[in-house]
Simulated scan of single mutants.
Amino acid sequence: MRLRKLAAELGRPLTHLALAFVRAHPAVTSAIIGPRTHEQLADLLAGADLVLEDDVLDRIDEIVPPGTDLNPLDADYLPPSLTDPALRRRR
């Protein structure tokens, strides 16, 4: 995988690259992590200091262009809460 290769070039695991990529987006105010084990938590926390330079972000965009839908099952799916306004209200 090209993203895994890029992470290796940076000397970091892919989990660190993924977390740093999410945090680099200007609209993201926090990244929610969901570790299931202490080892996963330790790994994610170890990557919290990674800040990606613009050239690395550009390389990621070349590998996976913005707006790419990686899961074909998600294509054209609109959750009911987007199609039925009543589902967006508390009762």
Rank of each mutant, 00 (worst) to 15 (best):
L6Y: 08
V22G: 03
I63W: 04
A8F: 04
L70F: 08
L78S: 14
P66L: 09
A48D: 11
L50S: 07
T37W: 02
E62Y: 03
L6G: 08
L17V: 07
T29H: 03
R90K: 07
A31F: 00
A48P: 02
R23C: 01
D61H: 08
G47F: 01
D55G: 03
T29W: 00
D74G: 02
P85I: 04
S81C: 12
T29M: 05
A86T: 12
D58Y: 06
E9A: 11
A86I: 04
R59V: 06
F21P: 01
N71F: 05
D74H: 13
A24N: 04
I63H: 05
I32L: 14
T37R: 04
D76N: 15
E9M: 11
L14A: 13
R2A: 14
L82E: 15
D55Y: 06
R90I: 11
R88F: 01
Q40A: 06
T15G: 11
E9R: 13
T68C: 09
L70V: 09
L10I: 09
D43K: 03
L57I: 10
L14P: 11
A48R: 11
V28K: 07
R36L: 11
L78M: 10
L45D: 05
D55Q: 14
R59I: 05
G11R: 08
P35Q: 01
I32E: 00
P85W: 03
P66F: 03
Y77G: 01
P80Q: 15
R91P: 15
L10A: 09
A27C: 04
G34A: 05
H38T: 14
P65V: 10
